[in-house]
Structures are given as C-alpha cells and as structure tokens.
Amino acid sequence: MAFDAQLAMTNSVAKITLIGSLDASSAPRFKEVIEEAAVQSPTKLVLIMNNLDFLASAGLRVLIFAKQKMGAAVDIYVVGSQGPVLGTLEMSGFHHSVYIQETYVDA
C-alpha cells in the first residue's frame, strides 16, 4: 500500500495518521510532516498506526528524529500499532521512548 501521512492539529495536539509502508522511500515524506507539526509547537504528538503495515530502519530513524525534534517535554503516543510494526518498535527499543496505546480518544 502506498504511504500516506496526514497531520491534524487539535488543541495543541499534533495527530499524524500513518498509512502503508514506512520505508526508505516514504520516510522523507513522514519527516516533512513531523517538521510541519514541530513548527506548531504541539504539547503532544500522537501517531496513529492502525493502518501502518511496515516499518523499516528509515522509518524508525524518523520516529527517533521526531522524539529529538519535539524535545523531552512533548510526549509521543504510538497508537494502534500491531503485528510486525509493534514488534519492530519493541525489538529496536523505541517503545521505551514513547507511550504505546491501543486506542486514542481525542481530547
């Protein structure tokens, strides 16, 4: 499935919905969206991954970039990640840097 990343800002919460495969070819697009979100100084970053079906090293690097870019004060929530994507997050240790949730309810 082709990659897509959509940003929505609500009450200082940046919600990015990821769809498809996050690999070396799609990672630059995801990075652009992260930067777009960062300039709006969100208090929270929510990554909706229900429909993200693949995460490669390049995608992980952008997730780490997001953590660095947002700073320690901005909590990052990874929502709905499943199967291999969740496994990859856990095996690479990134799950320690974020909050992993099954669902997310807009405030």
Partner: peptide, 20 residues
C-alpha cells in the same frame, strides 16, 4: 542474529538487548 536484520536494524536490536 537480529530478528530485524532484514530491516537493517541489527544495531538497534543488539543495543536494546544490552540496555534491557
């Protein structure tokens, strides 16, 4: 030795093991 080796994340996986 990395489950994520095919994804090129063997470095991350080994570091995660050491950290744990």
């Amino acid at each position: 030795y990395a489950a994520t080796g095919r994804l090129g994340m063997q470095v991350d996986e080994l570091k995660t093991l050491v950290k744990e």
